[in-house]
Amino acid sequence: MVGSSRIIPAQKIVSPLGNSALGPEDEKALRRSLVKKALAALQTELEGQKVFF
């Protein structure tokens, strides 16, 4: 997204925070880990743009 500074590579364009190949529990766990990564990014000091792998 134009101008974003804290970027988390997610799953798929058509399903950024999910993976339909997994079962419901595993899919939710995956989503939770991506969201926690985003929360960690919000708490990370930055000078420029950063991709959080």
Binding site: S15, P16, L17, G18, K28, V35
Partner: peptide
């Protein structure tokens, strides 16, 4: 289709509510 099946895949309300 995947987002319509489960909108949390785009807007993760379910895990945010847990957190």
């Amino acid at each position: 289709r995947l987002v319509r099946q489960d909108p949390n895949r785009l807007v993760p309300v379910d895990v945010m509510r847990e957190l």
